[in-house]
Each structure stands twice: as C-alpha cells, then as structure tokens.
C-alpha cells in the first residue's frame, strides 16, 4: 500500500545521494481511493513525524489540494478529516517514484513500493 503516509517516510538511498533526495516524485501513477477507519488519535500522534511540505506537495501531485500550506495550530475536525483522507485513503497501486536529485526510479507494483537497489547502487 503506497499511501502518502508511507511515501512521506521514503527517501532515495542510492550511493552518494544524500541531499535533495526527498520526497520522491510520483510518476505515471494509478490511484485508487479506499475508505479507512478514522482515528483522530493516530493522526495527532503521527502529525509531528510528518514532513509537512512534502505531504502537501505530494498530495497536490495526486490531485488533492485540501491541506493548508502551513500545518495549523488548531486541529479542528475538518482538518483532521482532510488529513485522514490524504494520508490513508489515497492508494497508489502502480507507477513509480523518482528521486529529485539522482533521478533513480523506484517502482510501485501491486501497491507495494520497491526500494531495492542493484549492488553497484548501494551506499
């Protein structure tokens, strides 16, 4: 399941690629929307661990513009609902993710991101 939550935790790890290697950019994606159970505690717990700008930009790339550019101080219901949808209900089933720095492409197949590298690419 490549959801934006997982995507927010993945960085390029090609040998020597250590800056501007996050967030990976989606390419040629097939998206499915699937409902997930809403859990406000989970969202509040996880919020401090998110790279906010990366999340907002990646959501925009997938056609969702519901999140504010700055993380709000007041976590109202509407914000949490939007965050829930962006993090957990947008599933990228097929496609790839490209490193903004070295342009290495990581495939997504059957909803699972493949972060494996060939031996010569390993740092």
């Amino acid at each position: 399941m490549v959801r934006l939550l997982t995507h927010n935790l993945l960085a390029c790890h090609v040998k020597g690629c250590t800056s501007n290697n996050f967030p990976l950019q989606f390419q040629n994606v097939q998206i499915e929307l699937r409902e997930a159970d809403f859990n406000a505690d989970f969202l509040k717990n996880f919020l401090p661990k998110l790279e906010w700008k990366a999340l907002v930009d990646s959501a925009k790339d997938l056609g969702d513009t519901s999140l504010p550019l700055e993380q709000p101080e007041m976590l109202d219901d509407e914000f949490l609902k939007n965050l829930h949808h962006v993090l957990l209900e947008i599933h990228v089933e097929e496609g790839s993710m490209t490193c903004p720095n070295c342009k290495h492409s990581y495939p997504i197949s059957n909803g699972i991101p493949n972060m494996l590298l060939a031996e010569h690419e390993i740092g």
Binding site: T6, L10, A11, H13, F22, E51, I112, M115, I122
Partner: peptide
C-alpha cells in the same frame, strides 16, 4: 504481510526493501 494485515484488520504498511534501506533517513 499486506494480506495478513487486512485479514486481521491491522493496517500494515509494507515496503519491499533490504532491512530498512529507504526508510532509515526519515525514521
């Protein structure tokens, strides 16, 4: 792993990688 997660109603986010490469920087 993904199927076992859904069978048991646990949302397991699965990543095909060696150990934790690709996740290490952010985690």
């Amino acid at each position: 792993t993904r199927r076992t997660g859904s069978q048991n109603k646990v949302a397991v986010h699965t990543i095909n990688t060696s150990l934790t490469t690709g996740l290490h920087q952010r985690l």
